[in-house]
């Protein structure tokens, strides 16, 4: 079955998008999985890395995906040529965009439409938003087309993040080892707990864990990481991998970066090895779900 990983934490700047990028490129470039990436964040940074995003003429500062390469204005009379994941909330068709990376397809964000979905408060509509992504990703058409789906979420605990969590089979919580970040972890664990109450045995939500991110060689980071590892139960969810703070992780995001992906760096590059090891850990957990548990229970 197609696995769905969501990178989530409601605190901003923890590395959700970076981590989504790394995982997506690892899956497509290194593992050659048929990968779909979904951008639920109205900021649309994740989308912008893979396709041309345009400024929304109607809402200043907002972004909309460029015209789809397959769009033909004389044939598609019903379609304006743009497609985003937000369409699912409007009962409109979604058409994934190809990217320059083989095996990697994208359902981009649409700032204004996503913001509207995020702002929903009326109960009946809210429930629809919460379940819409899950329903969409359960469609046989979607399931049959991809091995893995990676979702990037906005820095909030709102309807969009909840929708992503409800659709997910696995959660990764990237977090810095700092005060506000740990509080962010708490909030996300609440969301995971709440969702796990509702899941059946055949359809569990598996918390892969907290990925310590942007870790520096300072006492605060070391002691907070140790602190997390000392906590009863929580220690099982601190990933045994750490992403250090390195300039290369942000340099690689620049538009004309060369190479464009961490996984195109020489195989022995320290940064590549570090992120590859984290991605490998995550993917092993994702695809050995169930097996891992029975081993640790013995």
């Amino acid at each position: 079955m197609t696995k769905i990983i969501v990178n989530a934490t409601h605190k901003g700047g923890e590395g959700k998008t970076t981590n989504s990028i790394m995982l997506a490129e690892y899956c497509a470039l290194v593992k050659k999985y048929k990968t779909l990436i979904i951008d639920m964040d109205p900021q649309a940074n994740f989308s912008g890395r893979y396709i041309q995003m345009e400024y929304d003429p109607a809402y200043r500062g907002g972004k909309i995906p460029a015209i789809h390469p397959d769009y033909e204005s004389n044939v598609d009379s019903e379609w304006d040529g743009r497609s985003s994941i937000a369409n699912i909330f409007y009962g409109e068709e979604v058409v994934p965009y190809p990217t320059s990376i083989p095996n990697l397809e994208l359902l981009p964000a649409h700032s204004h439409k996503l913001q509207e979905a995020e702002a929903v408060t009326k109960n009946e509509v809210l429930e629809k938003v919460h379940l819409q992504l899950k329903r969409f990703l359960e469609l046989p058409d979607v399931r049959d087309s991809y091995d893995i789906i990676i979702i990037d979420t906005p820095p909030s605990k709102g309807p969009l993040t909840i929708a992503a969590v409800k659709a997910a089979s696995h959660i990764v919580i990237p977090a810095q080892m700092e005060q506000f970040s740990i509080e962010g972890i708490y909030g996300m664990l609440q969301l995971w707990k709440q969702e796990s109450y509702y899941r059946t045995k055949n359809n569990p939500i598996d918390l892969i864990g907290i990925l310590p991110n942007q870790v520096r060689d300072i006492k605060l980071h070391k002691q907070f990481l140790e602190g997390l590892k000392m906590m009863k139960g929580v220690s099982d969810y601190v990933m045994p991998r750490v992403i250090k703070k390195r300039a290369i992780y942000t340099e690689i995001l620049v538009e004309d970066a060369n190479p464009k992906s961490i996984f195109e760096l020489p195989p022995h590059n320290v940064a590549r090895l570090e992120y590859e090891s984290a991605c490998q850990y995550i993917m092993e957990r994702v695809f050995s779900h169930g097996k891992e548990k029975s081993i640790s229970n013995q």
Binding site: Y186, L189, K193, Y197, Y198, R199, T200, M231, G233, V234
Partner: peptide, 17 residues
Amino acid sequence: GLEETVSAAHNYSGELR
């Protein structure tokens, strides 16, 4: 808070639907 959350998720997973 963190410990209680993880423990509750373990103990009641799939049971409070």
